[in-house]
Design a protein around this nucleic acid. Structure first.
Length: 501
RNA sequence: GCUCCGGUGGUGUAGCCCGGUUAAGCAUGACGGCCUUUCGAGCCGUUGAUCGCGGGUUCAAAUCCCGCCCGGAGCACCA
């Protein structure tokens, strides 16, 4: 290869490699990147929310920067948080392999938001209006403000104190940020930043009844992103307009807005449920909990035996495209299968068992099969039949398909299938090549097996007792059938959750 | 309705910003073969997008311009 050709090849290779990872972040230099993940702790994480977390974390890592976890829990009324979710979300993140350098709760930062509210009122970039929601909406659509907008800071601050002191009741006053009353998008015009929430009616799960004036999303997020030194924001495209709104506040304070990237929604073809639908389904008992395998919550995926690396690599491969992605679940499972295959030991299990008697076997037989065919060093498992107990279970289907023919019980030998009886012919492996290979479980080594399927149903059958060597949480492969993650393993039987074929 | 953002094979994604040796790459799926005492994994191959539609600019457009269609998001005192 000529030097030029070689160079061209190298450039091409480099580009190819880049494609596999995340594209470079605009305006990013090593060591200076700060990103954040800012969930509302009012539910658990699902695949969609994982996207924000993974992207933000991966970029921070890529540039040796800082990654911050920030709980956005500033609505004790409509989107009330629950103490349990703070911990559940952290558990999900830890499972994904995400480490955060700092952690904040917005509900503990109200004094900070208040301080900047005063500053904004003093600077004349915000005001407090008594206009009710409807009046405001009507006027702003016509490009006309409520009268208080042009009043001096002293009067604004006076109203601010009234908000804090309780002189105003819920809905009687709201602090708004001045933008452009003729902005083409009416949703941008003078957006709301603080409202009053009656602490007696709506206590906050963390700070209780301490506050009656709460910041809205755009205020809290904008102030925090600046104060925490966030350089890059990665969030869903539903926040695109929020960026436009917040920029007015940043301009007012003379701050520089971070680089904001808005990606599209991520859904799986099946089980695409919103947070509220999940909550509702659980309350109504249609789902057994957040980890119901029909759900696409992270905790459910984890329970199913999906590896966290499968999720991160799926998200990374999708990049930061702004269009919505409806990912075929097969795709996730394919990535996952490659991850679990090498770590899954093999066992025989039969789910539509038919007991048959083996005839003509050469005395007692004990066969050793590898726990994993590609990693023989992991040892073997033993299956035994004897003339005293020559009974084994095979799948009803396997029996039906092979009746009147010869097939091989894997590891044991070749048999002619007759009515309720399998007749031993030989153990010739070369002859076995052309025969169907079926799995089997000796009657004397059978324990109960119960599998929770991805549609919520349960499959009952039997499994070879060797599986007792496994620990809960490990993923195994039931040969010729599917992969499953074990939840309970004991003499009483095994309980596992279906992963994928 | 108004304001944004998108539209590449079954699915996801690269390329578009700086228009031409890539008339479209990669992954996954589907199909077939090899290997294997699994219908898994691995290896090999096949399939499959005229780059939403119509026009324009140009010697040349997925890449630039215009119109249209379709999809999504936002239009909360939610996040």
């Amino acid at each position: 290869m000529s030097p030029d050709a070689l160079k061209a090849y190298e450039v091409k290779e480099e580009k190819r490699k880049e494609q596999l990872g995340l594209p470079p972040l605009p305006d990013a230099t090593t060591g200076s990147v700060v990103t954040r993940f800012a969930p509302n702790p009012n539910s658990v994480l699902h695949l969609g929310s994982a996207r924000a977390a993974v992207l933000s974390y991966e970029y921070a890592k890529m540039y040796s920067g800082k990654f911050i976890l920030r709980f956005e829990d500033t609505d004790p009324r409509l989107k009330r948080s629950d103490v349990k979710f703070y911990e559940m979300i952290k558990e999900d993140l830890r499972w994904l392999g995400i480490h955060w350098d700092e952690e904040y709760l917005q509900s503990e930062r109200l004094e900070i938001y208040y301080e900047y509210a005063r500053k904004a009122l003093e600077a004349g970039i915000a005001y407090i209006t008594e206009c009710d929601r409807e009046t405001f909406r009507k006027r702003v659509l016509e490009g006309v403000a409520c009268p208080e907008r042009s009043e001096p800071p002293e009067k604004q601050l006076g109203r601010w104190e009234s908000m804090l002191s309780g002189k105003y009741k819920e809905g009687e006053a709201v602090l708004r940020v001045k933008t452009d009353l003729s902005h083409p998008n009416p949703a941008v015009r003078d957006w709301p930043a603080f409202r009053i929430i009656d602490p007696e009616k709506h206590a906050h799960p963390i700070v209780g009844k301490r506050y009656r004036v709460w910041p809205l999303y755009n205020w809290a997020a904008a102030i925090d992103d600046h104060l925490l030194g966030i350089t890059h924001i990665l969030r869903g495209q539903e926040h695109f307009v929020n960026m436009i709104r917040q920029k007015y506040l940043y301009d007012g304070f003379g701050w520089r807005y971070p680089v904001a990237i808005h990606y599209g929604r991520l859904l799986l073809m099946e089980g695409a449920l919103s947070k509220s639908e999940i909550e509702k389904g659980i309350k109504e008992g249609r789902f057994t909990g957040y980890d119901d395998p029909r759900l696409m919550t992270l905790t459910a995926l984890r329970r199913r035996g999906i590896r966290p690396e499968a999720i991160t690599s799926l998200i990374i491969s999708m990049g930061i495209n702004t269009n919505d992605a409806v990912v075929d679940t097969k795709n996730l499972l394919a990535i996952n299968r490659k991850l679990i295959d090498p770590i899954s030991n093999r066992y025989f299990a039969v789910f539509r068992p038919r007991m048959v008697r083996l005839e003509g076997i050469p005395g007692d037989m004990s066969v050793s099969l590898p726990r994993h065919p590609s990693f023989k060093e992991r040892g073997t498992r033993k299956l035994e039949v004897s003339s005293k107990n020559p009974f084994v279970y095979i799948e009803e289907d396997d029996f039906g398909k092979n009746i009147g023919r010869e097939a091989r019980l894997i590891g044991l030998g070749n048999f002619i299938f007759a009515d309720g009886i399998l007749m031993f012919t030989d153990n010739d492996l070369t002859r076995a090549k052309g025969l169907p290979h079926i799995h089997w479980v000796p009657e004397g080594q059978a324990i109960k097996a119960s599998i929770l399927m991805d549609d919520g149903s349960t499959k009952d059958g039997i499994c070879e007792a060797n599986i007792l060597e496994e620990r809960p949480d490990s993923v195994v492969q039931f040969e010729r059938l599917f992969f499953a993650r074990l939840e309970r393993v004991s003499e009483e039987g095994v309980f596992a959750v279906y992963t994928s074929d």
